[in-house]
Amino acid sequence: MTMTTRAFSSRPGATDALRFVLNLPFAYLGTALLLLFAYFTRPMLLSPLLLLLIVRQAAPLGIAVIGQSVCMRVLSLDLSIGGVIVAVSYILTSGALPYPPPVLIAICILFGLVVGLANAFFITRLRASSVIVTLAMAMILSGVVISLGQFYAPGDAPEVLKFIGQKRIGIVPIALLVWLALLIPFALFLRFSVFGRYVDAIGSNPNAAWVSGIPYIRVLTVVHVMSSLFAVASGLLLVGFVGVGSMDIGSDLALNSLAAVILGGVTFGSGKGGVLGPAVAAFMLTFSFNLLTSLGLGEPGKLMLQGAIIAVAAMAYAVRMQRT
């Protein structure tokens, strides 16, 4: 017998329609539309060889997206992905650490672990906003790398990574195999483990998860560590793909991963969402960037598209907040 009346109620019609559209995993429809569009305007993009090249190009984003999607399912965010990738590229290519590639890769993984733990610490223990914490982390990491760049400039990527990033077996790029090798086991883990159940629970009601004794802090810590480790993996692949390190490598990966997760049907706070949707969305984004380039709209078109996607994401967020 509590009061539920409010002086205002939002207009239902408009938001309902918007909500319905936003609740569809847009990536499937979007990819289909894009392929159709390409068929009529730039059919050469649809040749199997070119498609596989685009898939190879999408792999680093696709791997970063795995971590980002789990972050968002527990109502967190990871914007430090770009910073992690720049740092990884620097460790691997600058020669500042005079070790063989396998050791450097191990250092990168350790580094990802530390970044993930630091993110998680500030978010769970100090209750800081995940946006602020991870954005600050990205900025600090980029800053450190730029200042170190005066002493050792980033250079050539290790051969082993170039091999993984650029070569293929038959016509299948190795990068795609790496992507699948990370994606499929992780999807199974999320589906069947206690951890995956807790991710659903926290995503759908963090208060209830806390009050019912779910190890909330632990789950969030693991999520952020995972996200940083996926970022490291993404960085390894990207450095190999590009062949050289640089100061702004992977800088738009954080925002693109955000966009891909949202296009892939993971909405804030629903506790729902698969791993496949975001993966398809990673391909869709990469494909659309290629399409824009072939239409002569390369960089400006890319910026506009990214902006539009993030605006839609913000609206999706606002609609969800109204509902709760």
Binding site: V194, R197, Y198, D200, A201, S204, N205, N207, A208, A209, V211, S212, I214, S270, G271, K272
Partner: peptide
């Protein structure tokens, strides 16, 4: 607010207890 996972199914809600 604090008790249930309203978007999740009855089964999922009860199953969380078993974990």
């Amino acid at each position: 607010i604090e008790g249930l996972y309203l978007p999740l199914s009855i089964r999922q809600n009860v199953a969380l207890g078993m974990l």
